[in-house]
């Protein structure tokens, strides 16, 4: 299986070459409904997760909302 190297929340990961943002979240057991994301500093809308194909060396940030003042 072909793989690519990406950085997720600051950590290097090896993932399948055909992965999308949505498939990545599912594999990581993260709820897409509760997650907001950036690829290379650009915000990706939740409606675009399924179409967002990840490329080698992409920097992914996955964030969620938490309690805060």
């Amino acid at each position: 299986m072909n793989t690519i190297e990406i950085t997720i929340n600051g950590k290097k990961n090896s993932i399948a070459a055909d992965a999308t943002l949505l498939s990545l979240m599912k594999e990581m057991k993260i709820s897409p409904e509760k997650t907001v994301a950036m690829i290379n500093d650009i915000v990706v809308k939740p409606s675009e997760y399924a179409a967002a194909i990840l490329k080698n060396a992409d920097k992914i940030e996955l964030m969620s909302f938490v309690g805060g003042g």
């Binding site: 057991k29 993260i30 940030e61 996955l62 969620s64 909302f65 938490v66 309690g67």
Partner: peptide
């Protein structure tokens, strides 16, 4: 109010 943080993998 709420805040935004990196996802924690501990579900």
């Amino acid at each position: 109010t709420v805040a935004l943080r990196r996802v924690e993998l501990d579900n």
